[in-house]
Structure formats: C-alpha cells, structure tokens
Design a protein around this nucleic acid. Structure first.
Lengths: 156, 156
DNA sequence: CCGTATCTGACTTTCTTTGACCTACAGAGT
DNA sequence: ACTCTGTAGGTCAAAGAAAGTCAGATACGG
C-alpha cells in the first residue's frame, strides 16, 4: 500500500465523519505516518486539489494548521464548469482519465459510466493513424459531448 | 515449452481460481520467471489483448501494478458476438446509432449508457479535420472498446 | 533459408518520497 | 512599537520505484 494512499484515506475518513471540513497539523500527521512533512503537501497537491473538489488553506507559525474543505457543488454546476472552462480544445488521454476519475470520486457519474467514458477515449479506442494533436482535439470534443449528455440526463 | 506460454498459463491459472481479475507486479513476475521485465509486456500484448478478451490497466511509480481483467466467458454472448464478429474495422455514425438503439431495446445497456455511447461517436464529438474513413475506423474501435467494458461489468 | 515469434537491454515516463532550505506568524523581551 | 526567536507550514529539486517502449538479437516452424 502506498503511503500517499494511506494518508489520502485517513483524511477522507476524517471528512466522512461529520462536516465537509477538517483541520489538521502538518507535522503531527507526518509524525503519525512516519514520513517527511512535505509528503503531506504532496498528498494535498495530488489528491485534494480544486480539480478533485477540495479547497485548502493554511497558516504558518505558532498554532499553524491546514484546513481542507470539500467543495459541494451540484453535479450539473460541476459539469458545466468542465465543459465551458476546464476543457479547452485539446485533452490528452491522461487528462481525460484523471477527469473521469474525479467525477467518479465526486459521485457525479457512476462507476459504470466512468468506465464507459474511459473506454471511449482510450488509446486503444483511438488507435488509428492520426496525429496525436488531432486525437487530443477529438478527446476534448468527445468529453464535452458526453458530459453534456450526462448534464441533460441529470436535470430529470 | 516457451517462456511466453508458461507466463500465459501462470496468469490464466491465477484467473481461474475464482474472480475474473488479478493484480500483479511486473518486476516480481519477471523475477519469478527469471526474465526481462519487458517480457511480461510482450505476453500481455500477444495473449491478453482486448482481442483475446482481456482488459489491462496499470500504474507506474512506487507501488505500481498491472491488473488484468478477463472479459471472455463472463460477458454476455451477444456483446462478445458484436465485438468479435459483427463489428468489423469500420462503422458509420448511422450504423453506430442503430446498433446502440438495438442494444437499448434488448435491455443489454441502460438508456443512460446508450446516450453516452451515442454522444461519444456522434459527428459533433468527432468534428475534427480527419477523413471520414478514419473516423469510421475509430468508431468501430470505440464501440468495441465500450462494449468490452460493458461486457466486463455484466458478469451475467 | 525465410518469415514470424520470442526475448533482451537500454532508455523513457510516471508517480512517490525525502531533505535542504525558505517564509510566515506569534509571543516574549526590550 | 520593535526586534528576536521559536514554531510551523511551503517549495523545489533530486533520489527512488515501477511500468512502458522499441530496436535489435535470437530461435523456430515450414
């Protein structure tokens, strides 16, 4: 088991019990997991970024802290943000997978839908002789098309 | 006995003992068989490809892994027929839509899934300057990829 | 002997973990 | 108020850990 995963899980468990917000001490947490304090920052950066649906704030010095807030946006708000702002004209396979995985985490799409989306934008699915740049352009369009479909469905 | 065949058998034995899914470490497996790690990739490519009825995913870096999912023998007959025989190398948008609609009628996929599939293969989604022939080739691959994914889930 | 299948090794890419150094804040002492 | 000092978090680059890729060597069936 990866350390990062353990820390991620620990924080998510904290967030699950009560409230959308948790406050913690970087050094204590690092101590608890027996790792470098900066490891905590790594976990925050890779698993609790705004893209993942979290905001973090912190304070240094005596009595310092890190606060993690789970952003509660409605599914369609989130989808519209992705379609209109986040996704541009081009999206790599990795970016697609990350996005889909985040939507799944946030329970905006089901695991089955996520799998379907992954399948459609995978390299395997697009394995024809076309320049990567064009494939990435297609991925962006495909993602938008699918997300709008889901948004439409969700209004019901 | 070929090394590749031994590795293939080993993995298939793992898959035979319950569960349609197995996770392994590339380096450990290579160590066990006393071969180059890339040999594992060769086996995956030549014996566990989607054409053979398997899906694979992996992760690099510390704590990395390779996961193999068996689809054949678990997916619905109908889906595998489509993937293996019915869908060739090329599929027009109209053909896609017709196919998806049939699957929905036959309740093999849900309405939501059907909508997603439609969205991904639509002209809107693939609207980049690429010859139609190539788009149709992509559609065929995308459909196969998505159907495999559904088959993997439908362990029925 | 030829074409295909198998194997290897060098190099690449991705993800994780650590450590050294930097910056911000609070409170004590002047 | 002003500085000094200890506490706490931030940054970044480098090391480490796995898996991926691909060209070329080797082996094998016909």
């Amino acid at each position: 088991m990866r350390l990062s995963d353990s820390i991620e899980q620990f924080i998510k468990d904290l967030l699950k019990e009560e409230s959308t917000e948790v406050e913690l001490k970087r050094n204590e947490l690092a101590e608890y997991f027996g790792c470098a304090p900066s490891q905590i920052n790594y976990v925050l950066a890779t698993r609790f970024s705004p893209d993942h649906g979290y905001l973090t704030e912190s304070r240094r010095g005596g009595g310092g802290y890190i606060r993690i807030v789970r952003v509660v946006r409605s599914g369609s708000q989130r989808l519209m943000y992705l379609v209109n702002d986040r996704i541009g004209d081009s999206l790599s396979e990795e970016e697609c997978l990350r996005l889909v995985s985040q939507l799944k985490d946030q329970q905006i799409v089901t695991a089955d839908e996520a799998a379907l989306m992954d399948a459609s934008v995978s390299a395997r699915a697009l394995g024809v002789p076309v320049p990567d740049a064009l494939k990435d352009a297609m991925r962006a369009k495909m993602m938008k098309s699918m997300l709008m479909t889901i948004a439409a469905r969700n209004r019901a």
